[in-house]
Amino acid sequence: MDKNALVSRLNKIIPGGVLETRRFGRSENTSIWIEAQAVQKIAMALKMDTEMKLDWLENLSVVEFEKVFIVTYFLRSLITRHSLVIRASAVPVSPGSEFLFPSVRNIWPMGLPMEEEAEEMFGIVFSLNNETQFQVKVNRLPENWKGFPLRKDYVFPSQFEDITHSRSFNKSNQKKSSL
C-alpha cells in the first residue's frame, strides 16, 4: 500500500479534503486527517478505490481531547486486507451542546450502531445530509437522562428522578487518592 499515492488520489477527487498524514501507534502505520465536511466524500472514495477497497468500517471511535472531538474511523478491507485509519475533528458551537457531524452509515452500514452510541454518549448527531435534526435516541441511558456522559466536562448528577447519591465522581479527587 502506497500511502502517498493514496493521498494524491484522494486529493484529486476531493481537493483540500486531506489535511495531513501521521503515524498511528505501532500497529496502524498510517492515519489520514481529513476535513470533517469531506468525510462522506472521502469515505465513498475509499470504499470505491480499486486498490484499497475498504469495505469494512471496523471501528468508529470518538475521543475528546482538549475540547476537540476527534472521530476516528478504523477501516479494513476483506478483499485486499488493507487497513487504514482516517480521522476528523470537530468542535461544538457551545460547550455542552449537540452538534452535527457527517454520517457514514449509508456507505458502511455496520457503522450505524457505533454512530448511535456516539450520539448518546457524546452528543454528536450523525446526519446524512447535514440537515438539522437534533433527535438523540436514548437507549443506553435511562429516559430523561441529561447530558452526555463521555464528555470531559460532564458532571454526574447527584439526583436522578427519585434516586440520590452522594459519592463524588470528581476526577481530581480520584487522582489524589490513587497517588
Binding site: E58, E64, M114, Q174, K175, S178, L179
Partner: peptide, 10 residues
C-alpha cells in the same frame, strides 16, 4: 495523567 483519557471498545 494517572487515569486513562479514553478507552473505547469495539
Amino acid at each position: 495523567s494517572p487515569c486513562p483519557s479514553r478507552i473505547q471498545l469495539r
